[in-house]
Amino acid sequence: MFFGNLDSNGKQRDRCSVPAEAHAQTGVAAACADVEVGLLAKNSLRNRAAGQVVAMFERSFYATLDGNWICVGQPDIGSGPLHLLGKFRLSRLATGDIARVADSTLWVAGAPLAMLASASLWVPSTVPHWSTSSLRRGLHAVDEPWTSDLMVGGLASAGFGRIPLQASALVQAAKPGLIALERILSGSVEESDVSRLGSLIGLGPGLTPSGDDLIGGALIALAALGHTECRDALWGRCLGQIDRTNDISKAHLHAAALGYGAAALHAAIHTVMSGQTARLHQALSALTAVGHTSGLDAFAGSLIVLRRATLRK
């Protein structure tokens, strides 16, 4: 369904023209042809896949198709592995509406929403060249802005390398899980660490709780570093506790276990790894637009992993 060469940003260079027979019937709103689909959403949007809308928001909605989760939304929610983005008209949709894919078109509530044959494909950008010195340079540069207003709310302060004395109640509650995460990353795991790590899952408010975002960021950073065995070991210890959180957050955690997350998170991780300090403020600004605190919480988990990586050398 999706073809074409990828450019440096992970999008297809060429788009197929939309065949005349694919246009919506007279009297029905036309489907959006200028859309972007994440690499995991692509696998869910197969012809004859069917399901329903399960959660509605102002700029997006979540749907399941044959049991697989996708997030359909406006371009400003940002690229990601589960996302289908376009300038959609969502105001008339509701939870429970039937969703299905037919003739390379996503139909919702009986109307065509997205033309999939012309979709561009999003995949994370390639991990840049990096070294221990470039990583240390990037971590040093991130410390100054990370001690400012970025640490207000959520678990962002956990990414600073040490938990501040005046930590919030949420950060205090996360301490056992954060200590367990550090031990698991170092390879010195105790039996009690598995349950302590599990205390992070579902911890905090929001659609994707802060503890889930932090673990997801750690998984994605481990994949970026090439530490797939450690990533899989961490994920294996999370699986037994996964039912502590909601289904939407589970879907994002499963994507993180494969090494995939929000485009802004990948960009921030790569910026720190490559030591491109001039791009750091832009990368952090983009993270603040991901959820209420989700982008910063996820990056805190990534920073925990990246700091640990410098100790291995």
Rank of each mutant, 00 (worst) to 15 (best):
Ser44Phe: 09
Asn5Glu: 15
Leu222Ile: 10
Thr310Leu: 02
Ala111Glu: 13
His252Gln: 12
Gly259Trp: 12
Ala298Thr: 00
Val123Leu: 05
His254Met: 13
Tyr62Ile: 01
Ala221Asp: 08
Gly275Lys: 10
Ala30Arg: 09
Thr95Arg: 15
Gly211Asn: 08
Glu36Ala: 11
Ala22Arg: 04
Leu280Phe: 11
Leu207Gln: 11
Ser134Trp: 02
Met1Pro: 07
Ser8His: 04
His292Pro: 02
Ile77Gln: 13
Gly110Ile: 01
Ala223Cys: 07
Arg162Lys: 06
Leu116His: 01
Pro164Ile: 00
Gly153Lys: 07
Thr64Glu: 07
His270Ile: 03
Gln74Asp: 03
Ala255Gly: 02
Leu222Lys: 13
Arg244Ser: 09
Pro145Leu: 11
Gly153Pro: 09
Gly86Glu: 13
His83Val: 04
Leu185Asn: 11
Gln166Thr: 11
Arg92Ala: 14
Glu58Cys: 05
Ala41Phe: 09
Arg46Val: 14
Ile70Val: 15
Lys313His: 12
Gln282Cys: 01
Ser188Tyr: 00
Pro124Thr: 08
Val35Met: 06
Gly153Ile: 00
Gly38Trp: 03
Leu82Gln: 07
Leu284Trp: 14
Arg237Glu: 01
Ala283Phe: 14
Gly96Glu: 12
Ala223Val: 03
Phe160Lys: 06
Lys175Phe: 04
Gly161His: 10
Leu6Gln: 15
Gly291Phe: 13
Ala309Met: 10
Met115Asp: 06
Gly259Tyr: 11
Leu40Val: 02
Pro176Ala: 04
Arg136Asp: 00
Ala50Asn: 00
Thr288Gly: 14
Ser131Glu: 08
Ser186Trp: 05
Phe2His: 14
Ser44Asn: 14
Arg48Gln: 12
Phe57Gln: 12
Asp103Gln: 13
Ser79Leu: 05
Arg307Pro: 02
Leu303Arg: 14
Glu21Ser: 07
Val189Asp: 04
Ile215Lys: 07
Val142Leu: 02
Gln241Cys: 14
Lys313Asp: 09
Asp103His: 06
His23Asp: 04
Cys32Ile: 10
Glu190Gln: 12
Ile248Met: 15
Ala99Phe: 00
Phe299Tyr: 14
His292Cys: 00
Pro112Ile: 07
Ala268Ile: 06
Ser192Gln: 14
Ala29Met: 11
Val28Asn: 05
Ala283Gly: 10
Leu287Ser: 03
Leu178Ser: 05
Leu303Asp: 01
Arg137Ala: 06
Trp146Thr: 03
Ile269Lys: 01
Trp130Pro: 15
Leu90Asn: 02
Glu144His: 05
His254Tyr: 12
Met115Asn: 13
Gly154Ala: 04
Leu6Trp: 11
Pro176Ile: 06
Pro164Gln: 01
His281Glu: 15
Met1Glu: 04
Leu181Phe: 04
Leu170Asp: 04
Ser249Pro: 09
Asn47Gly: 09
Gly51Ala: 08
Glu191Pro: 02
Ser285Asp: 10
Met56Asp: 00
Val123Pro: 06
